[in-house]
Design a protein around this nucleic acid. Structure first.
Lengths: 346, 346
DNA sequence: CTGTTAGCGCTTTCAG
DNA sequence: CTGAAAGCGCTAACAG
């Protein structure tokens, strides 16, 4: 029914082994023979059977990319960058790898489930992006899973997430803490003393690190922390949190949001409340997503090199770039000062 | 080395077949036996070998989702919705399907390559999202590939893309033409007579249909078409196109953009040119992405039910929803009138 | 309800 | 450089 490697072999008048060799190109084959085989492949419209191949070779060409929220450009940009490093010049079989992105939706269970599914497929590598959930039980389960994956030969790269020791995984970590600190320092420098903070979901590493940076800056300046509200990383959450912040303390002169999307929601709430940005309230985000420079006023934020980090993760996954020394690289963020922050009203 | 199904069978004192049956849950097994097997699985930390299973069963639990640009929320939202219909309550093996999203970057070659890779994996279903490239050679190649995939038992769902006849594929198509028409009618109603158009990339079905709708409205109103500029679906393109439009015709009173992201770029260019929105120039987008309601002024646009469409595609892929009559469903867009459009200056 | 028996289609030593 | 043969780990009849 469906054409197999044996059919190709018959047609090309060679043995199945030879066909396999030319397809994988990892073994010397006479040019004339190769030609004949390739022709047969074309004529028969043959497509390699992935599972059979993976079974026999005990490895597959699948690379998994786990993201917390595929609808969020933060993850989309990283995932796209990871994939951009695969698949060479679109040739025939060759070094093609199927980069597959899996959406955990931020759920710890789904994260584990996807890892199992990937383990099942004997994935060549797994790139896990974005903040981790800090629940101890889940952290332990993850560490165990990662270790087993690593032992089974799957390369693991953590991208934008803290290292998990003793699992053989490689981590490219964003300096969320440093970025958070610089952002608040900027606001402090402008003269703000009452800074509301809209944090991300609790028990998330990104949330905690950004918040810690914020507090570091406050403490260094001897300024008391104002109100802090937690919520998911979406615009709705920013909208509601800003209203809550205003209710708790109508005198806030600045609001720092967990990320740019949240900041956008916060801006909407402020405007609805009749407050001007930045004249009445300054607003800052995090990540520097593409839209952030275009909103009005343009958003002050911390730029994270999402594309670069993802691309690097992709290269490491492909074995095309050496792993960083100590298996960990810290990637700094860059403060982008724009129109949404200014001196507080006198 | 790595634990196999045979190991589990030995430990549970049953035959491999029985283990397979409890794992797949598609065959009656005595409760006590099942318990024993499950315990052995846990104790041995056994993970099914996907390739072996796929090879023997001649099907896999992979579902591919092709997107043109994973960094664009338009696709992220649909892809996330597709996946949301898979994987039940996160149970053990069960009906889990590995939904994998593949980023074509809008390249026809990569689209074909991914389809081949998916065919190789014997994917259970493939969901292809977003506009198609209209180049005849590519269209033919795609039709052939889709037909072969279908024959091999892979279910194909086109989501947000026109049907491809005679391939057995199912299409959930957005009414881009109708949406485009209503949008321009809205502008015409407001009194605009000189409407610049920033179209998407040439040879894309979405581009063509939206543009046709625009022209339909113009023609029905007896208004001449103004300038039209083509470009990719990103903010940069919108920015440049708007400048170009202004250069060609400084008297435009309204600009319709290919989508919301492009509209945002266009807004930035207008503002730079000292033009107010909507007082001097009205701007409209398409898609109604999450940020569109939050930008200032809020964007008039055509809402496409991306999540609903993706979810439906996911359900069809899972075989949990009947295919639409005639294998084609047309999904309408909804005009969202907001602050970025108003009467032209007198 | 459970065990036995063949493969699924490919890769990979091992010879030639 | 090429062929022969032995599985990879699992599923699916077919008996019992």
């Amino acid at each position: 029914m469906t054409v197999t490697l044996a059919d190709v072999a018959a047609r090309a008048q060679v043995s199945p082994a030879t066909v396999s060799r030319v397809l994988n190109g990892n073994y010397p084959v006479a040019a004339a023979t190769r030609e004949r085989v390739l022709r047969a492949v074309d004529e028969l419209d043959y497509v390699l059977n992935g599972p059979a191949s993976a079974l026999a070779a005990a490895t597959s060409d699948l690379v998994g990319v786990l993201v917390n929220d595929i609808a969020d450009p933060f993850f989309g940009i990283m995932a796209g960058a990871v994939q951009s490093e695969f698949g060479g010049p679109g040739g025939r079989a060759g070094g093609e790898r199927l980069a597959v992105v899996c959406n955990t939706g931020g759920s710890p269970e789904r994260e584990l489930t996807y890892l199992t599914l990937l383990q099942r497929q004997r994935a060549a590598a797994v790139v896990i992006t974005g903040g981790a959930v800090e629940d101890p039980a889940h952290a332990e389960a993850m560490a165990g899973k990662l270790r087993r994956l690593g032992e089974a030969g799957t390369r693991i790269i953590l991208c934008g997430r803290p290292p998990v020791p003793d699992t053989g995984s490689i981590a490219l970590t964003f300096d969320n803490r440093g970025g958070g600190r610089r952002l608040t320092e900027h606001l402090l420098d402008l003269g703000h003393r009452c800074i509301g903070y809209i944090a991300g979901p609790e028990e998330r590493t990104t949330t905690r690190h950004r918040l810690e940076g914020h507090r570091d800056a406050l403490k260094a300046a001897g300024v008391d922390e104002s109100e802090t509200v937690h919520g998911p990383y979406d615009r709705q959450s920013g909208y509601e949190a800003a209203r809550e912040l205003l209710r708790r303390d109508p005198d806030v002169t600045a609001i720092v949001a967990a990320n740019d999307t949240v900041a956008l929601g916060a801006c909407a709430a402020l405007r609805e409340a009749g407050l001007r940005i930045p004249e009445d309230v300054s607003v800052a985000g995090f990540d520097d997503l593409p839209f952030s420079v275009d909103v009005v006023p343009a958003l002050t934020t911390v730029r994270l090199p999402l594309h670069e980090a993802g691309a690097r993760a992709g290269r490491i996954a492909m074995g095309r770039e050496a792993e960083p020394p100590g298996k960990v690289a810290v990637i700094p963020g860059e403060l982008m000062v724009r129109g949404s922050t200014a001196r507080p009203r006198a």
